[in-house]
Design a protein around this nucleic acid. Structure first.
Lengths: 205, 205
DNA sequence: ACCGTAGGGTCTACATCGTAGCAGGATGAC
DNA sequence: GTCATCCTGCTACGATGTAGACCCTACGGT
């Protein structure tokens, strides 16, 4: 607030003319971001898998431009009920549901599919934004990543990962994950009927 | 700090004998939680898919007992490089890598598979912990979930979801997602060879 | 020309927070 | 006895979010 105020050359209190409080302002940030998320329309991209795949890459590109909003993106929904979120933040959800319904999912199936899709997507983002580099100037891999600290006995596999950690290709990895997920969803769709796995307890608590 | 201090009947400053600062204390919390995560050993559960499935359910049960650490769990790694995390927080990672290597994944493939797995897992958790209920006392679904606020024209699909939102079964949904993911990983494993999609740059930097 | 109202800005003040600095007190080794 | 080690407490400082009041400017109606 104070920092933002001076950044704008205004009094910090001036901000409260535009947002009720700090949290509301942060909610606005997430809305601004989510509202930029483009979900291809069925008329532009006939295959629903392609639509979702494209949307996933678009989302990734978007949040990578604003990595600092990611913590907000994941923590705010934990305290703000869906019904109270700004409309701009719900638009992508609605559009994805539309894509899924159009693909043939029943309404419950569409919800499940959306959850799997979006969950996977932000899970990937969280993975991609994790830090590994400890000493950027260091040449030796183990030192650069701080992995030398780990006992060789207890962390043999982790210590071997150093080269792969640096060669991370987030886009390829997301695409690969999407392939898995979309194939899985398609299989569920073709299985029709229950659409939700016929295991577990039939009566919800 | 102050709150915690009074809760313990001690001076807030006494805490600083045990943790360098607030952040370190929060890191300790996540370590405490992650260290309770049980990854079944191959000797106990021969199928690697079953191991990962079991671990996923265990993780879910664990964090549902401590939902307030979830924000820490997802945001802390964004600022703490992997190499600096406490050992207890890295142990599950190491064990999962061991499971994957044992299943036949090469070291790069194991990393990719781990990322897909863990990303999917926390994505699910974030989904499951989202709030929807606005007015718990309200009987009418739309009002209860606050969905009445959404324009019918713009949010037809979302408004239809009310009944499904309340009948959420996180355990079944996680299990279903795991089925998709594990099948996908197995397919990658059997494809052998590159194990990672044959695109992108072959030479790591 | 006047006034009223609304929108936006600033100042001050307060409670709350994390934490540095120092001063004890308790315990056990020698 | 003396010392070192560990732990606790007090005080104080700076930073933060924000309530409350006051003020300035713009503008429409008359």
């Amino acid at each position: 607030m104070r920092k933002l105020g001076t950044k704008l050359g205004k009094d910090p209190m001036a901000l409260y003319r535009y947002a009720a409080n700090r949290d509301a302002l942060l909610d606005g940030l997430t809305e601004l971001l989510l509202d930029q998320w483009i979900i291809p329309r069925t008329s532009d991209l006939p295959s629903w898998q392609d639509q979702l795949r494209y949307a996933a890459h678009d989302f990734r590109a978007l949040v990578l431009q604003h990595p600092h909003v990611v913590p907000l993106l994941v923590t705010r929904p934990l305290s703000t009920p869906m019904g109270l979120r700004p409309l701009g933040a719900l638009r992508p959800l609605e559009q994805i549901l539309a894509v899924l319904r159009g693909a043939g999912f029943a309404s419950a199936g569409a919800l499940h599919a959306y959850r799997a899709y979006y969950g996977f997507l932000i899970g990937h983002i969280l993975n991609e934004l994790e830090e590994f580099v400890v000493n950027p100037d260091e040449d030796e891999l183990g030192l650069k990543l701080g992995l030398h600290r780990l006992p060789k006995k207890d962390f043999p596999h982790l210590r071997q990962l150093a080269p792969m950690l640096l060669g991370y290709d987030g886009e390829a990895e997301l695409d690969q994950g999407m392939t898995i997920l979309l194939q899985g969803l398609q299989a569920q769709l073709h299985a029709k009927g229950p659409s939700i796995a016929p295991s577990a307890s039939p009566s919800a608590s």
